[in-house]
Structures are given as structure tokens and as C-alpha cells.
């Protein structure tokens, strides 16, 4: 192991360095690069930061960005909470609800029209 890499690390890190934070994570955690000023440090999380979604693979767990109109998502194409100004419907963020549905401005979702 490289001399600057220490084993005694915080939180979910498996290996880390003073300058770069986590270099690798304990199993089943998500490795994320956080920007602090000009520096990027590695952190290991049990869930991806807001605006990102996680995908688990046998050898690595990755975080990737949701779409621009989405705050939190299940996958890139399936949003679970839209950004303000958009209504959520079946995983999509819409500026206007489809015909047959009405916009609920409290939940910011498209809901069935209640007669």
C-alpha cells in the first residue's frame, strides 16, 4: 500500500489519504467525489447525494446524476421528486399535466380528477 495511504480511516472508507479523503469504500457503500473549493475528496455513503441515484454492481456501487428537472430519482429516466416548477407523473417531470389529470400544487404531482 502506498505510504501516503492510511488504513485507519473514518466512516465508510476502506483506504484513505489525508489529502484525498476516501480512496476506496467498505463493501456495499457508494463512492462519491465531493468538491470542496478546488479540491475533490472521496467520501463513502450508504446513499447517493441529493440529485444523484445509485446503481449497485458486483464490484462497485456508483452514483450518477438525475436529469436536470429532477431532484431525486430511482434511475436517470425515473424521477421520484421533481424540481420546483415541475409536476411529477409516473417518474416524469412535466411542466403541464397530461389531459385527464389535474395539477396538485401542494404535492406538485399530477393526480386523477376527483368528480
Amino acid at each position: 500500500v502506498h505510504p501516503n495511504v492510511s488504513q485507519g480511516c473514518q466512516g465508510g472508507c476502506a483506504t484513505c489519504s489525508d489529502y484525498n479523503g476516501c480512496l476506496s469504500c467498505k463493501p456495499r457503500l457508494f463512492f462519491v467525489l465531493e468538491r470542496i473549493g478546488m479540491k475533490q475528496i472521496g467520501v463513502c455513503l450508504s446513499s447517493c447525494p441529493s440529485g444523484y441515484y445509485g446503481t449497485r454492481y458486483p464490484d462497485i456501487n456508483k452514483c450518477a446524476k438525475c436529469k436536470a428537472d429532477c431532484d431525486t430519482c430511482f434511475t436517470r429516466n425515473f424521477c421520484t421528486k421533481c424540481k420546483s416548477g415541475f409536476y411529477l407523473h409516473s417518474g416524469k417531470c412535466l411542466e403541464k399535466c397530461p389531459d385527464g389529470l389535474e395539477a396538485n400544487n401542494h404535492t406538485m404531482e399530477c393526480t386523477s380528477i376527483v368528480h
Binding site: Y57, P58, G91
Partner: peptide, 8 residues
């Protein structure tokens, strides 16, 4: 239910 993963 709208989204489910049973992967891995």
C-alpha cells in the same frame, strides 16, 4: 408500485 429493483 412504480419502480422496483431486485438486482444483485
Amino acid at each position: 408500485l412504480q419502480a422496483m429493483t431486485l438486482a444483485l
